[in-house]
Design a protein around this nucleic acid. Structure first.
Ligand SMILES: [Mn+2]
Ligand SMILES: [Mn+2]
Ligand SMILES: [Zn+2]
Ligand SMILES: [Zn+2]
Lengths: 139, 139
DNA sequence: ATCCTAGCTTAGACTTTGTCTAATGAAAGA
DNA sequence: TCTTTCATTAGACAAAGTCTAAGCTAGGAT
């Protein structure tokens, strides 16, 4: 299920131990770590890995189109290995839990022509918010 | 048309010259300045105003619910005086131009029950992207 | 009109997140 | 194995925002 590494191999991209550890950290469903969380996890397996390498590698993976860079809160960016299948996000206002979600139909259809200000609109990304099951209980 | 100041008066909120200048800078449609842009504009009318006051005042206005804090690019936050009417945003990938837009219908309806992961979903915000008329010409 | 006080403003130190640099190290083809 | 090119590293730097402690002021009380 190491899908991300398989995809990365397809590019001419020197595979170093550092890059492998970072890619393995990122692999999985509903994974949306910050650079710092990735560094922390990578350090458990490779204590000498540097912060600069984590940032370099993440930025390269984004440039290759194999991971997504997300900005939800204006604090740290989050990195999403699910770059293959278009999706949106659902975030818990209580604990920050974050899920990949899919809408019924194409969000571009929800923006009528007279609301487009002459733009050629090509993309829409949606952030849904609410309370996860655990946080609903707590409330 | 100084709508924001009118709204701010309704809260118990000491009206200082600094706060008035910041509120006046923010007033208007399709205004989405960064804190730094607001500081720059405020300084034209009140050169001694401090960066800390701009940040303090913006955070208070957000807490009062009279302006919105927006995060698009993971760089600086933007502040939106249009907090009364629900809306979304359309951004030009070329020049960064940003428009308020309205969808046909309620975005919460586009998220089916089996995509909600048990969350109580209360809000959706959409960022549309594309090219503005000027940037389409340039391309 | 003056006083008083809670709360506002200020400069600048500090924090967080991320980028850059220049020296060293190592992957991969010849 | 050798070589070249690209990757890694520590630490300096930068941008955006928060915090602190000292002085100032808006607006109510007298
Ligand atoms: Mn995702
Ligand atoms: Mn807006
Ligand atoms: Zn939660
Ligand atoms: Zn444009």
């Amino acid at each position: 299920m190491s899908d991300l590494i398989t995809r990365l191999r397809r590019h001419q991209w020197r595979m170093t131990p550092q890059r492998r550890v970072i890619a393995e950290t990122l692999d999985g469903a509903h994974v949306h770590y910050t650079a710092d969380e990735i560094l922390e996890r990578a350090c458990e397996r490779m204590p000498e890995i540097s912060r600069a390498t984590v940032y370099n590698t993440l930025n390269e993976m984004v440039a290759l189109g194999e991971i997504l860079e997300l900005n939800f809160d204006g604090r740290s960016k989050r990195y999403d290995p699910n770059a293959e299948h278009d999706h949106h996000h659902l975030i818990c206002d209580g604990c920050g839990a974050m899920k990949d979600v899919h809408t019924v139909g194409d969000p571009l259809d929800w923006l009528p022509g007279d609301e487009r200000h002459g733009f050629a609109v090509t993309e829409a990304s949606i952030t849904f918010r609410g309370l996860c099951p655990e946080c609903q209980q707590a409330a």
